[in-house]
Write a protein that binds this DNA or RNA. Sequence first.
DNA 1: CGGTCCCTTGACAGCCGTCAACTACCGTGG
DNA 2: CCACGGTAGTTGACGGCTGTCAAGGGACCG
Lengths: 271, 271
Amino acid sequence: MHELLLRRLSQYIELSSEERNGITKLCSSIPRYVGARRLLIDEGEELYSIPYLLRGWACSYKVLEDGRCQILSFFLPGDLWDFGAPAGSRMATALRTIKDSILIDIPRDDFADLVARHPRLGEAFRWSGMVTDEISRERIVSLGQRTSRERCAHMICEIFWRLRAIGEVDGSSMELPLTQEEVGHTIGVSTVHANRVLQDLRNDNLIRQFRKGLQILDLAKLQRLAIFNPNFLHLQTKSAALRAPVKRPGVGAPLLLGQDGNVLRMSNVAV
Amino acid sequence: MHELLLRRLSQYIELSSEERNGITKLCSSIPRYVGARRLLIDEGEELYSIPYLLRGWACSYKVLEDGRCQILSFFLPGDLWDFGAPAGSRMATALRTIKDSILIDIPRDDFADLVARHPRLGEAFRWSGMVTDEISRERIVSLGQRTSRERCAHMICEIFWRLRAIGEVDGSSMELPLTQEEVGHTIGVSTVHANRVLQDLRNDNLIRQFRKGLQILDLAKLQRLAIFNPNFLHLQTKSAALRAPVKRPGVGAPLLLGQDGNVLRMSNVAV
DNA sequence: CGGTCCCTTGACAGCCGTCAACTACCGTGG
DNA sequence: CCACGGTAGTTGACGGCTGTCAAGGGACCG
């Protein structure tokens, strides 16, 4: 029932049997079955427990006063929701299911206790959290810099690699239970435009869509289009963490080199 | 030299003198003076220390292969950079100064030791980290849903409130050392368009700009335009954490209510 | 069979990126 | 003092991207 979590943590540390038992006990609550498109936690609600998704899909989102809605992240099987938040904090986003799902509520205190007793588990969770953070940073880059085609391709790649990591892709096909409205809310375009972008990708023979699924016809080309670096999900082990520093062309570099000295005029500063 | 950090942590917990001393010792390294627009840490570099900004401005950013650049967050006086990252992790973004700055490098191990010895400090840091996270979530919402005018207004409001919290605004005026190119890289528009958006805000008498500064002429109107909720920076105390749950109109609600029962068809699921 | 979601399409207008040229300002050096 | 060069800000023209509106079509479910 909690193999996904064990598998994930094993990517970062070797789990002792005590640690395994701790996780097992943590996940011993009775699973809840929740239908598609149901609110799990509303924005501003206090978090009494950490939702742990066993099956299904969910997403976090924010709704502006006038109804505009932005999906911030997907919540896939094996994911723990925001385990790093301090006790007593409130949800900064709402959380809802996308399709029929099964989840467990892990008491926050039990989680804190376990991590306190096993600091290495805490370490592993923090490594796991870095992946989540990196996904959200990459979403900022997408929304700020990538074209809508690229954003859509990037979203597909992200989901593909994440589902692959938990054994939920079949060759090049995967489930994609998102409506085009949800795709739009994710990549920051209207529903109509989400439709056009998806059609575009289909017409270019990059993807194929069926019922509630999607097949990637040319992963390499899709990733190139998305400027997608699969490494960013590969914080699998400490040694392989992120990619090596790379010098890049473009705006950043010359900007930073065209300056004199490292010491600034003291007249402007005081400690 | 480290009053800003002490002040920030005091928002979340009452600091004991031991904890104060710990922080003081943590900040006892010799400050570095760094000129404007200089690279502090490149993407992919290993983090040996936690940069702590005493004065000046910096930002984190990512550069795509073709040179497109997205600024992810601003780094203002009193900010600690990414203190939550596990030891040995690599920078997911690059970090550079925006103007002449002074910073301290806090050894990661010392930080970890201190937090381990004083769990309440760890708690306070995590509350502080939530503010950072919320800013980055709000940036996703901005880039995905707000118009460029709204995004620009939102950026100004965010900076205004953050500078105000550290006593760096004078009435309604503040420093704004960003070039229009940097504004563009922040709100996801071209430099030319950043210029047009700023002109727009000036023409509507919302802001006034001078040399390297900005005056907000009508904060209420600017915040309304930005759909800006100052509460999101107000995680000052646990009790005031975030805003209370609010029912909203729009897309979210009806979507989630139009479903039957809470239990899904068992045929689709298995534990 | 009717209703509800969801997907699709076309028309149109407005937002925004790009290109190119020009201006203003500053600090430097002659 | 002025000339100069570099950076940053500004403008106009143009085309492509994208939102909106409105209408239609198809799949599924009761």
